[in-house]
Design a binder for these strands. Structure first.
Length: 453
RNA sequence: UCCAAAGUAGCUCAAUGGUAGAGCACGCGGCUGUUAACCGUGUGGUUGUAGGUUCGAGUCCUACCUUUGGAGCCA
């Protein structure tokens, strides 16, 4: 039976018979025997196999170059040399698949740019193995976070007919053949359809029945964004809570960030060690800081004042009614507060129609969580639960209420104050791993002009 | 999309306008409980693409392509 390397390495005693199936990371030949560094992706650390020349299969040793796949059976014993606690002394060696000289991954380091061009092979590298193990563990942690708090997981649709969700350019979905342009009325769905840019509106319907819900799924934006923080396809997490106001929303967002940071530190310690060493020397310090301190909460107008009084000259104006620019967010999180910052109560004009109008009549109950290094990682709000106010908002933003009849129904039948937020999973991963390009935390990145693999 | 920078061997990088090189990878030989093994040796190039300037272009100019960084949009 196959033993995963992570379990072999975690062994507390020698074992007479283990079988390891893995890929060769490197081979070192000695007189009469060879060392094989084996990795099966179950953990960062390799298992060293010692293969004596009289072991069945040794005649193929010269073929076992970096990248080849093998099955090694043998005894797990304490290693006499420094560098590893356990090693396997082979009793049989079986070559499964060769990797010829064109195998592009070397034992030495590669640039992230090069590895992106071989996205099908990069999970075999130390860094990307660590990134994608961490991604998996965090996805699990996120489900656990919500499930433990009695949130219901809702699968909101990928295909939508709402063409004005207000969250960015959308991809068209059609069954029309290339080059043809018939009317949407005779297309598959009988109207224009798109890939979702957010599951929020649908999530609100379920929150209005099941109280606390969340979505966690793929999301699409057709923006021509060429940055290290944007992808055309990404995964978004959107909790939505009934009978909840903005303060409760901010509480949950802070709790969420802290829980995922704690989980990463505890559950992905080995992989985080790699990130700390090779990607971001301040990673542990930053995560510990996030865990220890409450996030700073500052109203939009107060944040404006901090920026205005900073003595800094910013490239973009600091003025009521304008969104914060990257330089402003960076100043707040990286220089002024030096920790995650939650900015709330934004001017009504710069936020979407569904955000709840505050009593001042000028601001809405919106909040953005800004983190050092990444910028905005969470955007959320208390939703407008009053039918008349919501309809007025829609008219102000030139939206047609009829198109949102089902969304408005929530306000007609047993409306409740409710709130939620959206969070980009990849941006969270960037924050928790220190990896600075979104293309390196998603298995196969889709960006303008790039859909290979 | 805008601004800036960069594209040279499979990878990482050198090369005053004057004969394209090194390390690693890979091949061969040697040595060794090795561990990014080591020593010797060999293979490896339409210098991103297309034009232009020049006696001569990897090097200078123009356009395009790609990548990176920053900006906008946002998650």
């Amino acid at each position: 039976m196959r033993t995963l390397i992570k379990h072999a390495l975690a062994s507390t005693e020698p074992k007479d018979a283990v079988s390891v199936s893995a890929w060769v990371r490197s081979r070192r030949d000695a007189k009469g025997f060879s060392f094989l560094e084996l990795n099966d992706g179950s953990c960062l650390t390799n298992l060293q196999a010692v293969v004596d020349s009289n072991v069945p299969g040794y005649e193929q040793i010269a073929l076992l170059t970096t990248g080849a796949s093998v099955i090694v059976e043998g005894r797990l014993v304490a290693s006499p040399a420094a560098g590893q606690k356990w090693e396997i002394h082979a009793t049989s060696l079986k070559m499964v698949g060769l990797a010829d000289a064109s195998y592009p991954l070397q034992k030495k380091g590669h640039s992230l740019e090069f590895l992106r061009t071989i996205a099908h092979l990069r999970p075999r590298s130390n860094l990307f193995g660590a990134v994608f193990r961490t991604r998996s563990r965090l996805a699990y942690a996120i489900h656990r976070f919500f499930q433990e708090r009695d949130f219901v997981y809702v699968h909101t649709p990928i295909i939508t007919a709402s063409d004005c969700e207000g969250a960015g350019e959308m991809f068209r979905v059609t069954t029309f053949k290339e080059g043809s342009a018939p009317a949407p009325a005779v297309d598959f769905f009988g109207k224009p359809t798109f890939l979702t840019v957010s599951g929020q509106l649908e999530a609100e319907t379920f929150a209005s029945a099941l109280s606390n819900v969340y979505t966690f799924g793929p999301t699409f934006r057709a923006e021509n964004s060429n940055t290290s923080r944007h992808a055309a396809e990404f995964w978004m997490i959107e909790p939505e809570m009934a009978f909840c106001d903005l303060a409760g929303d901010m509480d949950l967002s802070e709790e969420f960030i802290k829980a995922t940071a704690r989980h990463a530190l505890e559950d992905c310690a080995e992989d985080l060690g790699l990130f700390q060493k090779f990607v971001d020397k301040t990673l542990h310090e930053r995560l510990a800081f996030v865990l220890e301190r409450p996030f700073q909460r500052v109203a939009y107008t107060d944040a404006l004042e901090i920026l205005a009084k900073s003595g800094r000259t910013f490239e973009h104006p600091v003025q009521y009614g304008l969104n914060f620019q990257s330089e402003h967010e960076r100043f707040l999180t990286e220089e002024h507060f030096r920790c995650p910052v939650t900015v709330f109560n934004y001017p009504r004009e710069i936020k979407p129609f569904y955000m709840r109008l505050n009593d001042d009549g000028k601001t809405v109950a919106a909040m953005d969580v800004l983190v050092p290094g990444i910028g905005e990682v969470i955007g959320g709000s208390q939703r407008e639960e009053r039918l008349e106010v919501l309809e007025e908002n829609m008219r102000l933003q030139k939206l047609q209420p009829e198109a949102y009849w089902w969304y408005l129904d929530l306000r007609r039948y047993g409306t409740v104050p409710h709130a939620g937020f959206g969070l980009g999973f990849e941006r969270l991963l960037m924050f928790l791993t220190g990896v600075s390009n979104i293309r390196d935390v998603i298995p196969f990145a889709r960006t303008p002009g790039n859909v290979e693999f």
